[in-house]
Design a protein around this nucleic acid. Sequence first.
DNA 1: CTGTTAGCGCCTTCAC
DNA 2: GTGAAGGCGCTAACAG
Lengths: 355, 355
Amino acid sequence: MVMKPLPKTNIREIAQLAGVSVATVSRVLNNAENVRPATREKVREVMREQNYIPSATARDLSFQRSAVVAAVVPDLQNPFFYGLIAGITRVAEENHFQVLIFNTNEDADKEYRILETIRERNVAGILISAAGVRDKRTGDILKAYQAGGTPVVLIDRYIEGGEDLDSVMADNESGAYAAVSKLIELGHRRIAIIAGEKAYSPVYERELGYRRALSEHHIRIREEYIAYGNQMADQAYLCMKKLLALPKPPTAVFCGNNMMTLGAMRCMIEKGMEFGRDISLVGFDDIDVLNDMGIRLSVVDRSEQEMGEQAMRMFLRHLEDGAGGRSHISVPTRLILRGTELLQSGRGDTKGKEQ
Amino acid sequence: MVMKPLPKTNIREIAQLAGVSVATVSRVLNNAENVRPATREKVREVMREQNYIPSATARDLSFQRSAVVAAVVPDLQNPFFYGLIAGITRVAEENHFQVLIFNTNEDADKEYRILETIRERNVAGILISAAGVRDKRTGDILKAYQAGGTPVVLIDRYIEGGEDLDSVMADNESGAYAAVSKLIELGHRRIAIIAGEKAYSPVYERELGYRRALSEHHIRIREEYIAYGNQMADQAYLCMKKLLALPKPPTAVFCGNNMMTLGAMRCMIEKGMEFGRDISLVGFDDIDVLNDMGIRLSVVDRSEQEMGEQAMRMFLRHLEDGAGGRSHISVPTRLILRGTELLQSGRGDTKGKEQ
DNA sequence: CTGTTAGCGCCTTCAC
DNA sequence: GTGAAGGCGCTAACAG
């Protein structure tokens, strides 16, 4: 059976069939007030009959702006960024926007190239979790977009020189502070952190929260308990190994992000240690599959979905008010205690307790 | 500091500055042969100076087709699908295509609406892992696209009435067959499967592979060892529970997909069972985070990245040859044995052994 | 209320 | 080789 191709009717045909001018059809399309109800209905009817869909391409060309936003992320394999994209697309579709995705692969050069080519599409906005956090070109081109009327929203990571750009960040510092304070409250004194590179604001801010928690509770910060990796699992694995090899190993470990938590867990599992029993563990970012598996890990959680949604909403606002720049949203984090913050088999006891 | 907005030069200005006509500039843009080298260079120079980027919108309108493909997936949070998207975008960008993503949320109605609106963009192709696998409208509209010259590639799931559409599937049946055969070879006789809904071809095909493996090895297929859930973790958890409650529980379990494996694992963990020791377990689809954590699970693996890449390549081919329809690629699966296929603490012994 | 018309930026015959 | 002109489908004045 041969299927009939989708009709490619245009506004002119519709006008003709409805016995009106293209202007009127255009008005109906854009819900302009000044169209007689009868005419409007007639036009609508013809559009239905013809299964007419107006060309977004043509509209964009005329309008000089498209209902498309670019979502630029550094790693399309990381669950965090997927949650982000899911949030972005959710709000986008509610508002009849479409989403183009770009993967920079944590490569600043590639990112620059992408941002440069994106110009060709007249996207309405750019939502980006930048790779070139301290690459001048990244900051410059983003600011140029902003100046040109294309709202830019930074997500999750600040960039150097990007103070004037909108942003949606997590409340990293205080999330980490809460987690570490809790550990202290539970009696821990030897608390370690698996930290990351300072250039990446999220992970670095968490380190700051860790430091503040210790300071405020008058616990000496011991540099050997601060293990620096990058933001990946493998380095965190090594960090954990080093921490456990210390003369006085920590009784609790706080991890800088989801990947690092996994790496640390791997090290513990290899050593046959059970977290929440032999050592306490609190991660940053919840890890869905662990929950699917019933592995109850205590974490500082933030909703990446929500961050994506907020970013999209912020963009939409600035599209309206034309403002743009210098709006900063901090998405709250919450500490979810599931037992691994304790020592000696606290697992399950505090099931679902959150604060 | 105020940043200068990005220039919005058009072809006319370039022509003027280069002292040629727009036609010539257009030729240079499209690498047409018939332009004197000197002229070409002059034009290129002006374009560089002006930091000129041709408008894709205008090009699309004129060309009546855009360098954009739509990637339509049912669940942006499932690692499988985002691996797919990572693969698609990788090949897309190599070929200067951009990717619009749409999340159908496993909702056939929403999917139909999306496919209907996509028309407005004149996308070059549609790569889809369909939600409406037996929804007539989904099949019809996709065939209509195909008939209209827009290549459609089905990924991972067949749809009813979609025989004439291109597809990239995994070799589910034989992957499952290999896994179950291996279990039999290892001495298992009471082998269960956590299966899904028949409508979803991938999971159903795996059930068929399971059945064939048993049959060919002359092992009676016992329906109580076939637990039907949907494709999600929670149902699989219940399935596993039921299986373990049988008078003669299975000694080995094969799971229909990644989520189902996680659900099954949760049940085992809750019961304090260790897979690869108290019960054998083989999943379908590798789960990266488990590896990051050092949990070595035996699985039938297929590369979702590769499936995405193949799909994009298939689309590109059909864009060239104009063929389209009836090309089917089956991406091979491979059995990765990491120990959980054994009983009695085989963990780690067969480290990295693959076949 | 409705129609006419001139763009939006680029491509593509068709002449020269 | 190069230029002039019409067209892609829609929007937005400007008339009426």
